[in-house]
Write a protein that binds this DNA or RNA. Structure first.
Lengths: 210, 210
DNA sequence: CATTTTATGTGATCATTGTCAACATTTGGG
DNA sequence: CCCAAATGTTGACAATGATCACATAAAATG
């Protein structure tokens, strides 16, 4: 990545990387063409050789942020160990884990989370890979396959889980959690609430009301 | 509201009104100082006699949008009629109604909803009046008072209801509802899911899985 | 290898935006 | 009546995204 050359080499990915860094610190507002160009060691107009305009660059950064979120979910899901004595408990713990990963990503990287969902229903050039929604669908299918989620609940399940987890993430990111609630209990309540709405049993490690 | 006078009269509220109109159509991005000044028949710098900067004006518009949302919730809650034969059913229907009102406000006025929650945890100059959160708290207290919500569930209840309803609103506003789901069934699923998570009985008019 | 074509980056410039300072006008209280 | 405070205007500034003509490197072509 020589910076003294007239040609940058792979400016496009460098710009995206710079955008990700900026968004991590300052959110969508920090995605500024001139800043990203400077950070990439290039003049402002060079950006237009790789993106039609700033909106497209921002959209790509946003998509990249969404994929980071989905990767975090996949990562924790894979880390869940199966219990040979209880076939379904693994699937239950995976649902718990991906939900937590989602909210905790938002808590850990609030600005990046904001960037991930800043797009106002813009038609995506191509789908996210991986996609958080697909990870959720997979986890729910697992629950049905192991008999932990009744098939009649399968249809609405993703809506219920997604809205609850995404909503709590937004609340935490925006600092909208009213006192005296604490983020940790809010996360626990949300995750447990999803299980109850889905009529899925709690894992043994769960301690809650009743 | 004479527009040919040197002094406007009540520019502050006119600017807020113009901001609300603009936000309704174009969301937070449409809140531009020069546009609002022009729409109010005034020069750009006049704005600074009433707001320290554009961020404060935007914050006020945002708060006004949140209050509109809360008013919509209060309005439908008051419209719920009590059932003399069933003391608790009114409270149950009110929770249903305010949740629906919240999501349907977001669906009906997506840009305004976006504006309502655009503030990134900014310290509010003064609290919303009315506040959607307080409306929810009132509804939940009603449920406890009528014996429809178990007191042990009261603590987490607002977190569960708020995150689910707010989350689904955000999903709909951003056009993130994946096919083949339809907004209406998504709303129904979310509202019913809240009741199940809170272990509150469904109203008789509810038709859902089991 | 030489030359031409394409891809990529630069520099100057523009319109727009929020902001500010200096000045103008109105209003209202002694 | 007069002065001071409140309110609005004009003109300017810096920063932003965007666009143009031009420069340079890389790649394709003979």
């Amino acid at each position: 990545m020589p910076t003294d050359r007239y040609h940058h080499g792979n400016l496009r990915s460098t710009l995206l990387e710079a955008g990700l860094s900026a968004a991590r610190l300052g959110g969508p507002a920090a995605l500024q063409l001139r800043d990203l160009a400077t950070a990439s060691g290039v003049s402002p107009s060079a950006v237009y050789r790789h993106f039609p305009d700033m909106a497209h660059l921002s959209a790509e950064v946003s998509r990249s942020a969404r994929e980071s979120l989905a990767k975090a979910m996949l990562s924790v899901a894979k880390a869940v160990v199966e219990d040979p004595k209880d076939a379904g408990i693994g699937a239950i713990r995976r649902l718990d884990a991906i939900g937590r990963a989602y909210i905790e990503f938002a808590e850990r990287e609030p600005q990046l989370f904001d960037t991930a969902f800043m797009t106002a229903g813009a038609a995506p050039s191509c789908a996210d890979d991986p996609s958080a929604w697909d990870v959720l669908i997979g986890a729910l299918d697992d629950l049905v396959a192991t008999g932990e989620l009744h098939p009649s609940r399968r249809h609405d399940a993703p809506l219920i889980a997604w809205s609850a987890v995404h909503g709590m993430s937004g609340v935490l990111v925006r600092g909208m959690l009213p006192p005296p609630y604490l983020p940790e209990e809010a996360i626990n309540a949300t995750i447990a609430g999803v299980r109850e709405a889905l009529q899925v049993r709690h894992p043994p490690e769960f301690v809650g009301t009743r």
